[in-house]
Structures are given as C-alpha cells and as structure tokens.
Design a protein around this nucleic acid. Sequence first.
DNA 1: CATAGTGTACTAGTCTACTATGACACTAAG
DNA 2: CTTAGTGTCATAGTAGACTAGTACACTATG
Lengths: 132, 132
Amino acid sequence: MIFRLNPQSGVPMYLQLIEQVRHAIENGAVRPGEQLPGIRKLAESIPMNPNTVAKAYKELEHLGLVELRQGSGAFVSEKLNTKELTDRMRTAKPIVERTVEKLRDLGLNEDEIRRLVEAELTEKRTAAGERQ
Amino acid sequence: MIFRLNPQSGVPMYLQLIEQVRHAIENGAVRPGEQLPGIRKLAESIPMNPNTVAKAYKELEHLGLVELRQGSGAFVSEKLNTKELTDRMRTAKPIVERTVEKLRDLGLNEDEIRRLVEAELTEKRTAAGERQ
DNA sequence: CATAGTGTACTAGTCTACTATGACACTAAG
DNA sequence: CTTAGTGTCATAGTAGACTAGTACACTATG
C-alpha cells in the first residue's frame, strides 16, 4: 500500500490520492473488505496533512468505493463487483506497458507521452461526442 | 488554433494551455516564426482571463518556445529545431492512437486510461531512477 | 473499565490560481 | 498622425487547496 504523489504537478493532492486508491482497487491490489491505511499513518507516509487524507477518503466513500467506520477504520467497499473491472484492467495493462516502452524507446519523455495521450483522448472525445 | 481546456480537472488552466501550445509546436501544427493568437482573443475563445493567458505565454517565453514582441504579438520561436522532435511525435502518434482505440474497445473510459498510463509512468520512473 | 487506535469536526491562517478592471506602451497599417 | 491591435503592468478581490492544531466520539482489545 504505497502511494506516490507529485506535489508539483498542479493536481490537488487529495485528487491524486483518490485516483491512486481507485487504481489500486481496480487493479486488484486491494480487495473488497480489506482495510486501508489509517488516515494519520497514510498522512505521515506520503507526507501530507491528515485533513487532506480525510477529504480524499470521504470523497471515495461518496463514490461508493470505500466504507468509513468510525473508531474502526477505512475499508474497501464489500459490495463492489470488481471482478469484471479487474479483468479488463488486467487485459489492458500489458497493452499500455508495451506502448509506453515503445514510446520511451523512441526517445519520448514522460511529459511528451502524457501530452500525446491527452491529445488523443481530447480529440476523439470531441469527435465522438462523449461527455464533457 | 483551437485549444480545449478542462476547468474541472484540477490542473491549473495556464498549465493546460502551456501543455497544449507545446504540443501544437511539437506536433508541427504551428511552425517556428508563425504568429500565435493574441492574448485577448485567445482568452475570449477559451474562455479565460487575459491575465491567465499572459501568464502562460510568459512561461512559454521563459521556456524558449515562444517570443513575445510588445505591440506586435506572440510568435513561435524562430530558433527552434523542431524537425527531429516532430518526426518523433509523428512516429509516436499512430502508436498512441491504436493503443487508445484498443483500450476503448475493451470498455475503458478516459479516466481509467489516464490512470493506467499514469501508473505505468510512475512505476517505471521509480524502477529506472529517472528524474523526480 | 482503561487504553490505544480509529474516523470526525472545527477554527484559523497561508498560498496559489483565477477573475475583474483599468491604464500604459509599443507596433503596424491606413 | 491616427488608430487599432498588440503585449505589459498593477491593484483588488474570490475561491479552493493545504497546513496546523485541537478536541471529540466511537470501536476493539486486554
């Protein structure tokens, strides 16, 4: 349960935390019912303020991914049907791995890769009339 | 010269603008010496405050990508050697296109794709001991 | 029952992004 | 010279993210 956040990126820390917990769940790294790190310990390890971690956890609860039990702890929601999701992610992961490797071999750095992916998502979103 | 920013993403608007102008240059969409949209017009079209656009342009100037000439306008820096860069990007683009298409076919949405790519970049960065 | 560990809540203050407005200075075109 | 278009600068204010510190309430354990 290690989270790596980037305080410099401009993306609020609590949003980054949310994304990473979400990813850990989708990924199968943590399973439904499993206990997540406590607010204070997590805040220490990142490091960030406990209030900010609490904010992220509360948002995750609101999203239905996490259950917060006062006095007890934070747990991955029991009711989640993660099987289908983690299967998709498991299939997708090697695809992404290979692509990122290819791009790195071409000499692209992280930011350039991000820009390419973002541009692709943005273009096709507009073309397909998806949300936003 | 159309820029699509997402005010909801948590990423500061001026950073998103910088990334997109950068991408347009790397991509060959605008060439060295070419004039960029004026601060006020750009601000209108996005929309955002002219000060914020000016901040982005100033940062781009500091990065050496753009030249600002008072009274005249903003121009893509003449001295840029973009050939090698745009070649790499041109090679990389279809790779990214195919991958994103595959992921979409698997049923992944934008956010899930972003998380996968980000996780891949983060993991390998740590493993390889790259910057940050 | 006592205690340690948990989530919850509140106040206060700082910092940054952003908006709003207005004025100024320079440049190119008529 | 005039004018329209440009970048530059300064002030003020709003909103959100984050930190700091403190106190409280609940739960599990011994």
